[in-house]
Computed example of a mutant assay.
Amino acid sequence: MNWEWLFVTIAVLAALGVYLSWTAGRLDRRHARLEASRAVLDAELLRRSASVLDLATAGLLDPASSVALADAASRARTAAEGTERYQAESDLTAVLTAVLDDPEDLEPLRSDPAAEAALEDLAMACRRAAHARRFHNELVRGAIRLRRKALVRWLRLAGYAPMPETVELDDTVPHGLASE
C-alpha cells in the first residue's frame, strides 16, 4: 500500500513538472514572438514615415502640405522610444488625416501615374502599420493572460522579463487613402 502512494506521488509530481516546463516554454516562446512583432511594428512605422517623406518631397502636393507632412514624418522617425515616439506617430496620423482625408481633394493627383504610385505606397504602408500594431497588441494581451495565471506568478516562470505593454497610438488610415 505504501508503494502505491509513492508511485502516485511520483506520477503527480512528474505531471506537474511536465506542465510547468511546458508552460515556461510557452511563455518563453510568447516573449520571443513579442520581440519579433515589436521589431515588425517598428519597421512598418518607419516604412510609413518613409512613404510620407517620399510623397512630401515628390513635389506633388502644395508646399504647405508638403512641409507639414515632411515635418511630422521626420519627427516620427527621430523620436525616442516609448511615449514620445507613439505621440509623434499619432501626430503624423493627424497630419496625414488633415492633408489626405478627403478623396475628392486627391482626384487631381490620381491622374498622374507617379502621384498615384506614391499614394498607393503610402496607403499600403498605413494599412500595414495598423495591422502590425493590432497583431502586436493581441500578442501582448495573450502574454498578459498567461502571466496572470496563479502558478506562473507563484513560481515566477516569467523570470525577470518586464510585463509587456500594448502600443497605443492613432494609426487610422485617412479616408482619401482608404478608398483604394
Rank of each mutant, 00 (worst) to 15 (best):
L69T: 04
E81F: 12
L106F: 01
V152C: 05
H136W: 02
A161P: 02
V167A: 12
E168S: 14
R85H: 13
L122Q: 03
A80K: 01
L69C: 07
V40W: 07
W3Y: 10
W5N: 13
E89V: 15
Y19D: 14
R127Q: 08
A178I: 04
V140R: 04
A114K: 08
P174H: 07
A114V: 02
E44F: 04
S21E: 09
E107D: 09
A94P: 08
S37C: 11
A115V: 03
E180S: 15
A56M: 03
D112F: 01
R156K: 04
I144K: 08
E168K: 01
V173W: 00
E44Q: 15
L61Q: 03
Y160R: 06
A68G: 05
A130I: 00
A150T: 14
A64C: 13
A123V: 02
D170V: 09
T23A: 14
P174D: 10
W154P: 07
G82M: 06
E116W: 04
A58H: 11
F7V: 13
R134V: 09
D62F: 07
R148C: 05
G59E: 09
V140A: 08
L177V: 06
L169W: 02
E44I: 00
S90F: 03
A64W: 01
I144T: 07
R127T: 08
L122W: 00
P63H: 01
A15E: 08
T78F: 14
R85P: 10
D171V: 10
R153D: 10
E4M: 14
A118S: 13
L60V: 13
F135S: 12
D121F: 04
P103N: 07
H136P: 11
R147V: 05
G82V: 06
L13E: 02
R47D: 15
I144N: 06
R128F: 01
A114N: 05
A94M: 03
S179H: 06
G176H: 03
A14Y: 04
T57K: 04
A161M: 03
V52Q: 04
L122D: 03
D42T: 12
H136K: 09
P103Y: 00
L106Q: 01
W3Q: 07
A117G: 10
V8N: 10
A72E: 02
L146T: 11
P162G: 10
R75N: 11
E4D: 11
A76Q: 04
G82L: 02
A68D: 11
L60H: 09
T83L: 13
N2A: 12
T166Q: 12
D112A: 08
L60S: 13
A115T: 02
L109A: 04
P113W: 04
L13P: 00
L146H: 06
A132S: 11
M163E: 10
N2V: 07
L27Q: 11
